[in-house]
Design a protein around this nucleic acid. Sequence first.
DNA 1: ACCTGAACACCGTTCAAGT
DNA 2: ACCTGAACACCGTTCAAGT
Lengths: 212, 212
Amino acid sequence: MTASGRPAPSRPTLSRDYIADAALSLIDADGLRKFSMRRLGTALGFDPMAAYRYFPHQEDLFDGVAAALFNEIDPDTLPWDGAWRALVEEYFTRLRDVLLRHPHAVTVFATRPVRSTAAIDTGVRMLERLRDAGFPPPQALRVVRCARDLTVGHALGVSVLRLGAASRSRRPAASSPEYNLLAEAADDTDIDDHFVLGLAALLDGLAHLVRT
Amino acid sequence: MTASGRPAPSRPTLSRDYIADAALSLIDADGLRKFSMRRLGTALGFDPMAAYRYFPHQEDLFDGVAAALFNEIDPDTLPWDGAWRALVEEYFTRLRDVLLRHPHAVTVFATRPVRSTAAIDTGVRMLERLRDAGFPPPQALRVVRCARDLTVGHALGVSVLRLGAASRSRRPAASSPEYNLLAEAADDTDIDDHFVLGLAALLDGLAHLVRT
DNA sequence: ACCTGAACACCGTTCAAGT
DNA sequence: ACCTGAACACCGTTCAAGT
C-alpha cells in the first residue's frame, strides 16, 4: 500500500480515523492527564508533531475521539423497527456501556457535541422514529435530550468515582451517627445500579408526551 | 486583623476559602483553559506559587472550587419541612441554576465528588428526609443519584453548547431534507427547557419506590 | 510537497536561597 | 518560620529548515 520500500510494520498509514483511535487507546491506557499531542505522535511511530498534519488543534482531535466513541454504539444494529421505548432504552444503555468501558475518556465525550455524520444521521433517525410513534418532533427532541443528559451525567459520575477510588479514597471514618445513614445506604447500593431504574423512570414519566 | 502595618488594600488575608472563591472568579472570567496556579497567585497579589501554600495540588484547589459551588446552593434555606418531592425538585433546580451561572466551572464540579462537610451534611439530611417520607435508604440514595446525574449531565451539556456557540458554530447548512427534521425541532425548542420536564418525569417515575 | 525538530510561550510542581 | 523565584520536566503550537 505504501510507496516506500521499507518493511515498516510499525509505520501504518496515517488517517484521521486511525489517529483518533490511537488517541483513544492512549487515553484508555494512561489517562487523560498524561495524554499529549507529542506523546501521541511518538506512540504512532512518527515525529511528535505528526498528529497536527491531520488535526490542526487538540480540540479537533478530541472531536474525533468523541466520534469514535459514538461509533462504538454501533447504531446500525439498534432495534429501529421495534417499539420506541425499547429503541431508546437500548440506545442509551449502549451509550452508557461504551462510556463506562472508557472511563478516562468520558469527559472528552461529555464536553463537546458529536457532529459526525454518523451521529447526526442517528439523531435524525431517532427523531423520525419517535415522531412516527406519536411524539411531536420538539417533544421527541426533549425526550432524547433528557435521556442523554441522564446517561452522560451517570457515566461521568460513575467513572469519576471508580477512577478516584484507587487514588484518593479518603472516605471519612464512620464516626458520627449522622454519617452512618449515608455510609450504610452507600454500602448497600452499587455505585451504578441506579441507571436502569432511572432511565426507566424517566421514560415512564415522559411517555405522556405522545400526541400532545 | 493583619499583623503587618501596611495599608495593603490589595493584599487580603489568604485562606483556603478565599483562594477557592478567587479561583472560581478567575475561571468564570477567563475560562478553565486559561486558568493556572501561577495566574491565580498573581491575581491574588502574591507570588505565582502562593496558592501552593494552601492547596498542595491543583486537584485540591479544584475540590475547593467544587465545594464553593455547592455552597452557592444555600442548602440551609431549602424547604426541608415540605413534601419530599418539592424538596428534591428545589434542591436540584438550585444546583442547575448555580452550575449554569458558572458555565466554565461545570466540568470542575462534574469531575469530582464534593466531600465538604456542608455537602455531606446536606446529603445525610436529604436521605433522612426521604426515609421519613417512606423511601428505604438504599432507594432514597438511588433517587438522589438519578436526579444528580440528570442535573449534572444537563448543566454540562447546556454549558458546552452555550460556550461553543460563540466560537465554533459550524452547524451545517439545512440542505438535506433529513437534516431538516433535527434542525427544525432544534429551532423550536430552547436548549435548556427540557430540564424541568425531565426532572419531573424522573421523580414521577421513581415515586413508586416509596415503601418497597 | 511533505517531513522534521528547534523555538516560543506557557504549564504544575519542587526546592534552594533568602528574610 | 514564612516567602520568593529559579529551575525542572513538561505542554500546545508555530514555523524555518531540510528532503
